[in-house]
Design a protein around this nucleic acid. Sequence first.
DNA 1: TCCACTATGTTGACAGCGTACACATGCTGG
DNA 2: CCAGCATGTGTACGCTGTCAACATAGTGGA
Lengths: 197, 197
Amino acid sequence: MARVTYHHGNLREALVDAGLELTRSGGAGAMVLRDATRQVGVSPNAAYRHFADRESLLGAVAVAIQERMSDRMESYVAPAPAGQSGARARLTAVGLGYIDFAIAEPGWFEVAFAGTRQHSDTATPAPLARLLEALDALVASGELDRAARPGAEWPCWSAVHGFALLALTGPLRDLPAEAVRAAARRTVEAIITGLLG
Amino acid sequence: MARVTYHHGNLREALVDAGLELTRSGGAGAMVLRDATRQVGVSPNAAYRHFADRESLLGAVAVAIQERMSDRMESYVAPAPAGQSGARARLTAVGLGYIDFAIAEPGWFEVAFAGTRQHSDTATPAPLARLLEALDALVASGELDRAARPGAEWPCWSAVHGFALLALTGPLRDLPAEAVRAAARRTVEAIITGLLG
DNA sequence: TCCACTATGTTGACAGCGTACACATGCTGG
DNA sequence: CCAGCATGTGTACGCTGTCAACATAGTGGA
């Protein structure tokens, strides 16, 4: 894959792709700037023409991950709306989708959300947007009081986000997968019940 | 504070203390091994007589932080038990204490719980032990069905842990403190209601 | 058509990091 | 009193992120 022209042509995107590959297995710590440039076949400093520093590249990778995560969450939502309470099922699906993505792609999840870095790039990360939509639908269906809507995303996001982290790095880490799934479902149900009740 | 004897005398503890100081403001990334040894007035390699590597020292610091956190959570619990449902108030206090510690000491919280590192040192981190006690009390008071007790800690911990992270590095970061407190209370109430209901 | 400009990539260097290996020091028990 | 062991030091290595100076090439105006 050796480059033949002096200029790469699409280095920025190529570096983000390399970052995706590196972080997928190793998390944020594996996003070594020199590794990314090596993988692309470019000198380390070439990265600085497109990103201010390592952190900035990592931020771009995080945004790319958030979009993938949002896509996967939508694939969970799609089959859900059949049933009596489509809106509630949809919210449940969004939550479980979030958790499943975190468990399936721990490295990516860490970069997208678990890092200490502020992800101020996007005002609203794509997965959060999916949650907001689901909550709005719950208001539209009359299941959630309109007055209770503002701020309702925080309990929801807190629960699924926290659960994802416990499942990845916390004590749920080495439970059998089925037990983890059951705990996830219970957590999501509990927070929704608590919110509506 | 120059040392006069060749041997330090209590290097292990001194390094943990240095780690506490470093991480308090800068989080896990600020725990630079060479900085810790410099601060103690010892050569970098001296640390390796007490810790296998940087990660191991960081783990010891994390345990120390967890104990401080547990102490602070107990100070929240103490004034609570007066009232009709002492057990429920106690659980609420544990949750809010967890969140308040995280907001008050973001660097420490990151090391103790937010890091990607597995904290397998202690089987049950001290703050989690406080939560388990509060849940047991809820069973004893009859408010939580005994059959629902196993695994009840996961929804609870998920909610407060997730909230703490959102408040530190997520979108709740730059809300006014009062709004954050309100959201925290709502989150804790919601998860408890969802659990009992 | 040519040429200056600008965007993009390279080379070389630096300080700082975690850590390995060999050595120095000093406490402690037989 | 001395051997052995725990503890601390010195030196060195490879790696990292990043800076400054330079090389290359695509591009728009004369």
